[in-house]
Design a protein around this nucleic acid. Structure first.
Length: 267
DNA sequence: GACGCTCGGCTGGTTACTTCA
DNA sequence: TTTGAAGTAACCAGCCGAGCG
């Protein structure tokens, strides 16, 4: 197989992104929850240079999911079609007293809460700063609550357990939403970086193809005069002659590239 | 062990209300 | 003073896993 064969095997560029998954030692449920939160440092965008069909396959296989034995589905499961129309004719009026404390003046509520064990009408209250701070602290320790923790927290905050539960549900949703926004921004930047790298490699590829005629010259040289860089698989003429400045790739395997760990694919 | 049922907890989506620029 | 956007408490439907008979 000569250099022509190598050059004409359809070298191409691939683009993908790896997501690393930690091994969890927690309960299944918490594991399931953690899956939803992607850490920044778990992204491994990469470019590949190799036979085009292999690049596509490797990029889709690897980027689509499998890292560390865990499969990750970037596409969230189909969202449930919630056609809920939570009709409510309750209303709550609140005022602030002189000290800034909130005073609730509840008026009407015909909607019965599912947790309304006290028979009191549903209120939409605003949690105090202290309550929020305690809830936040508790959330930092554990994003989910067991029944005992929920009960204890409810007692401590003078809230109903249902309120604590709802607060944690909403808090998790907010966290996930923010994380999604952050991930989106990160992916945008990754995409920009990889696009630039892709352009650069395309250019490099064109240059390599343009060296086709020159390369035939190297093939005629005795094998002993050629040396290959083990890391980048570039062949040089053993330091002899002008050819050392004109490397070319002969590796057939895909060249995985991580722009975060390797700012440049070049030597 | 397989099956069906119940229950509790979670997620995604939504509504209604509050706050603030 | 009004208004629109953002934040958030509360809710609902649906899903899933554990426990039980």
């Amino acid at each position: 197989m000569g250099f022509d064969d190598i050059c004409n095997t359809g070298l191409g560029l691939g683009l993908g992104c790896l997501i690393k998954q930690e091994n969890f030692s927690q309960s299944d449920h918490q594991q399931k929850q953690k899956k939803l939160f992607l850490k920044h440092d778990h992204f491994f965008p990469f470019l590949t240079l190799g036979p085009s069909d292999e690049i596509y396959q490797s990029a889709t296989k690897i980027g689509a999911s499998k890292v560390h034995g865990e499969s990750i589905d970037l596409h969230q499961q189909a969202s449930s079609l919630s056609a809920v129309s939570s009709f409510s004719n309750s209303s709550v009026k609140r005022e602030r007293d002189f000290g800034g404390e909130e005073v609730e003046l509840e008026r009407v509520s015909s909607r019965v809460s599912d947790e309304d064990d006290e028979g009191s009408p549903r209120k939409k209250l605003r949690l105090s700063k202290e309550q929020s701070a305690i809830l936040e602290d508790s959330f930092k320790e554990h994003s989910t609550l067991n029944p005992k923790q929920k009960q204890a927290l409810a007692q401590q905050l003078n809230l109903r357990p249902r309120q604590v539960e709802v607060w944690f549900q909403n808090r998790r949703a907010r966290t996930k939403l923010k994380q999604t926004e952050v991930d989106c921004e990160l992916l945008k930047k990754c995409c920009e970086t990889l696009t630039e790298e892709n352009k650069r490699l395309q250019k490099e590829l064109q240059e390599l193809k343009s060296l086709k005629l020159t390369s035939s010259y190297y093939m005629k040289l005795p094998a002993a005069t050629l040396t290959m860089c083990p890391s980048c698989e570039r062949v040089a003429n053993g330091g002899e002659g002008p050819s050392t400045s004109i490397p070319f790739t002969i590796g057939q395997k895909s060249h995985f590239f991580n722009p975060f760990s390797h700012p440049s694919a070049a030597c």
